[in-house]
Nucleic acid binder design. Structure first.
Lengths: 227, 227
DNA sequence: ACAGCATACATTGCATACAAAGCATCCCTC
DNA sequence: GAGGGATGCTTTGTATGCAATGTATGCTGT
């Protein structure tokens, strides 16, 4: 299925920053590069549009970037949803429905995260961080919440790299993760929810501080072409 | 743009129950009925798939229905997101950023809702109820949360009709709405969030009680064709 | 009569052709 | 020299044709 392949390749490249926000994608150019006809490209672009990763802008689509304001909104939603999943995960743990191995995975991911941030490998840290949070969400066993968080993370994941750059923030992230794991392991639902929400909010602040300066001014309209 | 038209018409019909859950839609049949070619139909179906309103099932797509379990998950997410929007709306009210007219609209919608439920017009009540909740979400001025709630409501709206059928439930709904409006009007953020979440949870229970019985067993696989 | 295989049909996936629409550019006129 | 209009090109929207695939049905053999 070529549509699927095109979709995945474009999506991968967008969420990793391979396409600059505001960059224009035309059906023809994409189909030429990926060597398929326009039909599967069209469908892939439509799906990406549904995901909020590109948006139609007159002629064709441009890759979307969340403005500073929109990013804040996204983090607010993330805080809310991750509070839910953390809470649910803790409740499930209390009910004995969480396998100990899953909890161990969480701890292991966080330890790995500590190591790579120590080494200054922020790209790897970004990935591990996302994996950690996804694992927590999985423990809630709520497919709808999980899917929404997946979509949301696709949109904010670029900014999470920036959120690691302020000094001491990586250590704080690891510490907060550890707290979260403990709360879940103890089955403290409300506490876990609060920690998750607090962590997301702290990350939002760090992301805002971490990005050099263009916070919000550039909604993707100005990036056209090099001189 | 025919794609848009096809998408909207199919979506409208699905969320209002015009297509039975599990019913099969083929590109050809839809394109014949709506008198367009397969191309715009394809795109519309893909968008609906992204919305979770249909899902591909081997040959073509079938209109999706949330199982009882999935519905519970959806309501959990709804509770979380509506807590967020209610909380944010109240905070904005406290900051003086809400127009009094918007608050009045809320009250008016709720009064209307009381009237039509009194009259037993559940179809109208379903619509007004959704409008009320959407208005609250709009007051939060968070486009991302708003869009997620829109998508979520498309999936659960059918069940909200059932949630009104248990005796006394309509009165409780109106009363809970009134409480919510008061909390927002008073700028009581945390209280508003709690009321919204509690209301969503109560609605979930009522929906479960309101639907005759097939709760969960039928995930849409069995409805094929009449005898 | 039942099981297995082959064939025919329904349906999707992809490509290509065609039409329409928007935008930029260039020329002509004032 | 500047402004307006016409023309041409780029790009999307829609239709249709063709190939591939999976399913159902019917036939044949045991």
């Amino acid at each position: 299925m070529q549509t699927e392949s095109v979709y995945r390749r474009l999506r991968e490249r967008i969420v990793t920053g391979g396409y600059a926000p505001g960059e224009r994608l035309t059906e023809l150019s994409v189909s030429a590069v990926l060597e398929v006809s326009r039909t599967p490209v069209r469908e892939a672009l439509r799906r990406l549009e549904g995901d909020g990763l590109v948006r139609s802008a007159g002629r064709g689509v441009i890759v979307a970037a969340l403005s500073g304001e929109a990013l804040a909104h996204a983090y607010a939603v993330r805080a809310s949803l991750e509070a839910l999943t953390a809470e649910t995960a803790a409740a499930r743990q209390r009910a004995g429905r969480i396998a100990p191995a899953d909890l161990a995975d969480l701890t292991r991911d966080n330890t790995l995260l500590a190591e790579v941030t120590q080494a200054g490998d922020y790209d790897q840290a970004m990935l591990l961080n996302r994996r950690f949070h996804r694992r927590v969400a999985e423990l809630a066993a709520n497919p709808i919440a999980l899917e929404m968080l997946d979509r949301l993370w696709d949109q904010i994941v670029v900014s999470t790299r920036a959120s690691l750059t302020p000094p001491q923030r990586p250590d704080a992230v690891v510490a907060e993760h550890r707290l979260l794991v403990c709360a879940i392991a103890d089955g403290e639902a409300e506490l876990a929810g609060r920690i998750a929400a607090g962590h997301a909010r702290a990350t939002a602040l760090a992301a805002e501080a971490g990005v050099p300066d263009d916070s919000g001014a550039n909604s993707g309209a100005t990036v056209k072409k090099g001189p």
